[in-house]
Design a protein around this nucleic acid. Structure first.
Lengths: 347, 347
DNA sequence: CGATAATTGTGACGGATTTCACAGCGTCGC
DNA sequence: GCGACGCTGTGAAATCCGTCACAATTATCG
């Protein structure tokens, strides 16, 4: 009869039309609607045909009448009950979204097997114990369910819901559900979608990304020093380990409390803070830019390499304390560590 | 070339195969794989064909080799960066999901325009200020983004991401995105999906649901008394308003602190508690069952209707205080209210 | 060693969905 | 009044996707 895709597009049209009406627009042409909904004009006309809604040539479609017509088609006459099963992070977030958006047309109930959650109210939605789920769903005449249960628990929950009379299930779990054919099931599997996204990101530029990417993340080496707890003045440390100071940091000295050694820009994001010294053998402008964004106060390049002038220039502008150690990452780390031990002894 | 759906199915196959391998299974037939993935056997074979992976007749497909082959196909050789834009409820929940599942194959960074969020770490993922997003995404070579921004903000965020080199976007916002054709966009619009679910729940049983549903939620009338704050013994109240006690409640008296009047079972969920008196003119078994599940201590039917024997029986079993007021909902509420006022004066 | 049984790989088919193309029609300008 | 223009509605073509059916292949058993 009418296909899943068509229904989902009509839902999208309705949203567009509602926005247009709020802007005071009364008539719209198929190609305008198409542009707003990111489909083709022919598609729009064909979709509007199946819900028996006609426009007039040279004026287009009546916006208000369209909304009414689509609402009658999509929502039907009665208020729907929606059960959300699994009140974890995702479940709560979806409740917040959905209750706000659809509370006029539907009411929500949530179920969870955790007794600590049962009895609470989240975002205006009552959370109940999953033990009584089947009975309650049947009593309330609920026909729509959202599954946000952990992997592995989806099938049994779905079975119970179907026994209770549920006709449509939206599941965020990766488990494929085995249910009667007349049950509508929609999968919103985030991990699977991400994997598709990964694939098409790679295919888009014909595999050339690999070589280029290798340059961005060159060496997989990551030495993490133990947290020192004690602060350390970079100026003293630099002298002690025989490193050359290229650009000075803040006028009143630069203090750090952690050292992070590694070349992966991506790891830098999780490790760097405004009191981290970064030890790296990748003297690139890019690394410096990221370091700046992370408020890293000091960077130590190794192997005695002279950074390019533009790198030095940027460091000076940012007030980043830049030093160059004559030895490699491993030795530099060792020296800094030793310096720390001595400092501790003195204290 | 290879279709979106095929990629998503292959992702599903890989998950199934991984589970099988963990169970120690080495070979699998197409029809077994098909059953686990909820597709047909022919589909499986055709999909495996496109990734150039062959099984052997009479033994089936090698599970480990399949996983390797699919991973090479899906993930490619390098580690991917994924940017999540919009750290609201939904964003956080997705981070929790995705970081756990995919942290081996990818690293995550989050962006938000709220300065209070920037600098924090959520689920092991660094949250940064959206101001620097474009630059950082470019520097990190990120090609995949997840959009969990509020409605209306999706297009501009997507534009910035595409400028920064992003190739794939997964968006949870309802806004249709206008982007170059070579950008992969996947919409996970929860509201739109819910609307489809509503539609198919209704169509499934041929529209017969309407009449039946009307019986479940008969009268849209809801009188809410103000919160009383003071407790009230039902036994005293019943005598005062001239109601007949059908079943006694707990032996030591039943106290309530709120009264809820209405016939909508669904509203009951949000209003009822273990100290609420329920006033209803719907003397159905269903209402009593829901009330029991909500731990409602007392129910008052109106208009002097005699509840059916099975209703009385169930109330007695549950220890629910059941009374019948001779007058209608409005008058009953008025009488109870008056009783409250008097009780307050005495106190 | 040959028959058998079961499965894979794939050409061909069919259904669904989208796009194309054009007839029909109302409106505007002259 | 009437011709030109632009949009709608829809038959027809094209495309995509999934299923069927069968030849090819390989282990097993007698």
């Amino acid at each position: 009869m009418v296909s899943r895709k068509t229904v989902s597009r009509i839902s999208r049209y309705r949203r567009v039309l509602t926005a247009l009406r709020d802007d005071g627009i009364e008539y719209v042409y198929s190609h305008e609607l198409a542009r707003h909904a990111a489909v083709t004009a022919a598609q729009v006309r064909r979709d509007l045909m199946v819900i028996g809604y006609s426009g007039s040539p040279n004026k287009g479609y009546d916006v208000s009448a369209g909304i009414t017509s689509m609402s009658r088609f999509l929502d039907g006459p009665r208020r729907h009950g929606i059960a959300l099963v699994g009140v974890g992070n995702l479940g709560r977030a979806i409740l917040a979204h959905a209750v706000r958006a659809d509370s006029a047309a539907a009411f929500f109930v949530a179920f969870d097997s955790d007794p600590a959650i049962a009895g609470t109210t989240i975002n205006g939605c009552r959370c109940l114990d999953a033990t009584h789920m089947e009975e309650l769903v049947r009593s309330l005449g609920i026909e729509i369910a959202i599954l946000t249960v952990p992997e592995g628990a989806a099938q049994s929950a779905a079975d119970a819901l179907v026994r209770a009379g549920v006709k449509s299930i939206i599941t965020f779990a990766p488990d494929p559900l085995h249910l009667p054919d007349d049950i509508f099931v929609e999968y919103l599997d985030i991990s699977a979608t991400l994997e598709s996204a990964v694939f098409f990101a790679r295919i888009g530029d014909g595999g050339r990304a690999d070589a280029e990417a290798a340059a961005v993340e060159p060496i997989i080496r990551m030495l993490e020093t133990p947290l020192t707890r004690s602060q350390m003045r970079l100026e003293d440390m630099a002298r002690d380990i025989g490193a050359r100071v290229v650009t000075p940091g803040k006028p009143n000295g630069t203090e750090i409390s952690r050292v992070y050694a590694g070349d992966r820009v991506s790891d830098l994001l999780n490790e760097a803070s405004d009191s981290t010294l970064l030890v790296s053998n990748l003297a690139s402008l890019q690394m410096l830019r990221v370091a700046e964004l992370m408020d890293v106060p000091g960077i130590c390049f190794v192997n005695g390499i002279d950074p390019e002038p533009d790198v030095v220039e940027l460091a000076r502008e940012n007030g980043t304390f830049l030093l160059v150690s004559p030895v490699g990452v491993f030795e530099t780390c060792g020296l800094i560590y030793q310096h720390l031990s001595r400092a501790k002894e003195c204290a």
